[in-house]
Amino acid sequence: MAAAGRGRRPGAWRAVQILAAGSLLALLLLPLAALLASVSPSAIGAAALAPGMRAALAFTLLASALSLGAIAVLGLPLGYLLARRPFRGRTLVESAVTLPIVLPHLVGGLALLLLFAPSAPLGALAIRAGLPIVQTIWGTVLVMIFVSAPYAVLASESAFRAVDARLIETARSLGASPASAFATVTAPVAARGISAGLLLAWARSVSEIGGFLILANVVYPSSGYAGPVTSPVSVYVFSLYQIGDLPGAAAAASVLVLLAFARFVAARLAARRGSPAWAGLGRFV
């Protein structure tokens, strides 16, 4: 019978699926396993406590928090605008927003350097305003915004777009002004997608390196950052590798892997606690 003949195929099909998925998983996890296996726990501990690492981590957290705040304030309204209002040139705006995702990483840093070098008009203006860009936290933040804002804008756009217009109309009819309908219905319903987008943006900004190498490979204290001379943490690990300290680089990289893992577990736990705003995060971190 035909049905019986077909009955064998799902087994073969499943085997193909498992083989493909398993190969990719191995490709993703084996390098991390090799990295962690190459260093002893005590070396990882030492790397985590090294003053250079601590300064780089603290600096990166601070810069990424500033960048995330700026993206939330400036990017979410853009996502909302793109989702809700048809306007002339929307495709153009969308392309512009997407551009940094497809650009080679170094390009962003180079472009920002040309715009904000002390000799350029905008760079001079920034220095006069007390916000020097090159080799400061502000350069780091700019690079982070440039490379990661697109993720937050695009994610929030699709999250806002997914909110059924009838929900908003119903809220209005039940007595909500446009602003309170946004606060009580649109934002909470879109919160899952938005927070996932923000987290993705944050993860992208801390993992950046190309732009930092040009604009902020060494960061000096300035307005906004009073700590020691340091680097973004990705650059810090890279510099260890570059001077030939492979065990040191591996230990520092292992610290980052463990931190990423801790972040993943924390997000999963938050999602399990059932707060809808956090529920989407576990998948992305």
Binding site: D164, V189, A191
Partner: peptide
């Protein structure tokens, strides 16, 4: 149509 109950 579809009631538009608030899912959150």
């Amino acid at each position: 149509q579809g009631l538009a109950l608030f899912p959150h």
